[in-house]
């Protein structure tokens, strides 16, 4: 890591202005929120920008609110503010618990959820959980506003489906009904997680059958992945599902394009998926 090269910071007063600035400076500019990823990459000289557009000064963009049965987390809400949000703690505790284990407190204090998702670093905790929570993101660009499902958001490592000069304004999470049980588990040795696994199961009234299941694994491959095959193996009567867990883990691993990297071999990651799917299952159903 070296010094930062010279750059200029611009502070837009609203989203439209930020979008405009982005269009004006083009490739020479980047949006800049907490800077925990961006500035690090610039210090390592893997990214260079002459202009940074500081989105965290845009008023209201950090708000966390409940609107029409939908949790809306502003793109510049920090991990720390999410972790401590009373609303989220009571309505979506699986999310605040996951957030409380992101990075370290300094990164959480500065880093934003929008920055985490838009950087599309493969070792993201929120990305994996948001996939099973059925979230979508609100974006705004020169062409106006649109929504993108989390399922469609990632295009590859460090790549999203945001169009040039589009920015994320919020993350929207439908409030799950009382029948959903969910858990997020992760395994970590290094600074970033080696594996993150999210599971959500919709139970029938008696709690003995799972009518719907969503499962995703992150960090082990270029993008977090859901697996339709695994989800169908996790739908049905509880005893059968318990038996199916190893098969579901295999299906999830198959969908995830496991790779050997510094964090571990593909074989080990496959094994971890087995271990952590079971742990997530137990955790999700704890107390029910």
């Amino acid at each position: 890591m070296m010094l930062l090269r010279r750059f200029e910071i611009h502070q837009p007063s609203n989203v439209a202005e930020a979008v405009q600035m982005g269009a004006h400076f083009g490739e020479q500019a980047s949006l800049y929120a907490g800077g925990t990823e961006l500035l690090l990459a610039m210090k390592h000289d893997v990214l260079r920008y002459k202009h940074l557009i500081d989105v965290k000064v845009i008023p209201g963009l950090e708000a966390i609110e409940l609107r029409d049965g939908m949790i809306r987390v502003g793109a510049t809400a920090t991990h720390r503010s999410i972790e401590r949000s009373a609303l989220l703690r009571s309505r979506l505790p699986v999310f605040t618990k996951m957030e409380s284990l992101v990075a370290n407190v300094r990164v959480r204090n500065t880093g934003t959820l929008g920055g985490n998702l838009c950087f599309a670093e493969p070792h993201s905790d929120p990305a994996t959980l948001l996939l099973v929570l059925g979230a979508s993101v609100a974006v705004e660009g020169p062409q106006g506003r649109r929504e993108i499902l989390m399922d469609d958001f990632f295009a590859g490592p460090y790549e999203t489906r945001l169009a040039p000069n589009e920015m994320m304004t919020a993350i929207q999470i439908p409030l799950p009904s009382g029948r959903w049980r969910s858990a997020y588990v992760k395994f970590q040795v290094h600074e970033r997680p080696m594996l993150g696994l999210a599971l959500a199961l919709e139970t029938t009234e008696d709690g003995e059958t799972f009518s719907r299941a969503r499962v995703a694994v992150g960090c082990v491959s270029p993008c977090p992945q859901r697996s339709a095959a695994a989800e169908s193996l996790l739908t049905g009567p509880r005893p059968e599902i318990e038996r199916n867990l190893p098969l579901a883990a295999e299906a999830l691993a198959d969908s995830a394009e496991l790779i050997d990297d510094q964090q571990g071999s593909a074989e080990y990651k496959r094994h971890l998926i087995r271990v952590f799917l079971r742990r997530a299952f137990v955790k999700a159903l704890e107390g029910s």
Binding site: M1, L40, H44, H190, E191, R192
Partner: peptide
């Protein structure tokens, strides 16, 4: 338990505090 500088070919690949634990 944790520390190891890793070379891949000629390149030290974890020569920073994010990757070197």
């Amino acid at each position: 338990l944790y520390e190891e500088l890793v070379y891949e070919g000629q390149q030290l690949v974890n020569g920073n505090l994010l990757d070197y634990r």
